[in-house]
C-alpha cells in the first residue's frame, strides 16, 4: 500500500476519525457548517441538538437550501450530510437544551462543539459541560460577526476549553453576520475538533 503517500496519510486520518463522535450544540451558522466539514473529513458519528426550523433568512449563511425551508434543522442537516456520506452515524435531537441538563446529549461524545447563538446560553452551556463533563474537550466560538480582520482571530485555551475568539467583534445585535466569516469560525471549530481527536491517538 502507499502509506507514505499523501493519499495514504489521508486514509489513516479518515480511518482514525471514523471511530470518533462529535457532539454539536446548535445547527445554525456555526453548527451546520462545522458538521459539513467534519463529515467531509471522515468523522464517524455526529450528535446534533437544535430545536429550530430552517427559515429563509438562514440561507445567507447556514448550510441549508431553499427547498428545506420549514424543515427541522436537524433533519435538513441529516439530508445534506447523507448526500456527502450516506453511511455516517447521525443522531439529530430536535429539542431545546434545558439549563441544568444541557450536558445530557453529550455524555458519550469525544469532543463537544458549542455552536449556539445567544451569549448567555453559550456561556451557560460551556459552564455546564466544564462542570459535569470535566474530561471532555469543548470548543466554543466568540465573535462571529463582521468581515475581514482575520488576524484578530485566535484560539484561546483554558484547560479543556478552546475558544475561537475575536476580541474586537461585536454581538449579532450590533453587527452583521456574513456567510464567509461565520463559516470561517465554524470551520475553525471543526479544524480544532479534528486536531484534538487526532492528538488523542499517538
Amino acid at each position: 500500500m502507499h502509506l507514505n503517500s499523501i493519499e495514504g496519510q489521508l486514509s489513516i486520518i479518515r480511518n482514525k476519525l471514523s471511530n470518533k463522535i462529535v457532539g454539536i450544540a446548535g445547527a445554525g451558522g456555526l453548527g451546520s457548517n462545522a458538521a459539513i466539514a467534519l463529515v467531509r473529513t471522515g468523522i464517524g458519528k455526529l450528535i446534533v441538538v437544535d430545536h429550530d426550523k430552517v427559515e429563509k433568512s438562514n440561507l445567507t449563511r447556514q448550510y441549508y437550501f431553499l427547498d428545506q425551508i420549514g424543515k427541522l434543522k436537524v433533519e435538513a442537516l441529516e439530508e445534506n450530510i447523507r448526500r456527502i456520506n450516506p453511511d455516517i452515524e447521525y443522531i439529530g435531537i430536535p429539542r431545546k437544551l434545558i439549563p441544568g441538563e444541557m450536558e445530557k446529549p453529550f455524555g458519550k461524545v469525544d469532543v463537544v462543539i458549542e455552536a449556539l447563538d445567544d451569549a448567555e446560553t453559550k456561556t451557560r452551556f460551556i459552564e455546564e459541560i466544564l462542570e459535569k463533563l470535566p474530561d471532555k474537550p469543548i470548543i466554543a466560538a466568540s465573535g462571529t460577526t463582521g468581515y475581514g480582520n482575520l488576524h484578530r482571530i485566535s484560539t484561546k485555551q483554558l484547560g479543556n476549553l478552546y475558544i475561537c475568539y475575536d476580541p474586537e467583534a461585536k454581538s449579532c445585535e450590533e453587527d452583521i453576520l456574513i456567510a464567509s466569516h461565520v463559516a470561517l469560525m465554524a470551520n475553525w471549530e471543526a479544524d480544532l475538533a479534528i486536531e484534538i481527536l487526532l492528538s488523542e491517538e499517538i
Partner: peptide, 8 residues
C-alpha cells in the same frame, strides 16, 4: 477573561 459574544 474572555467575553462570550452573541452570534452563531
Amino acid at each position: 477573561i474572555i467575553p462570550i459574544i452573541s452570534g452563531g
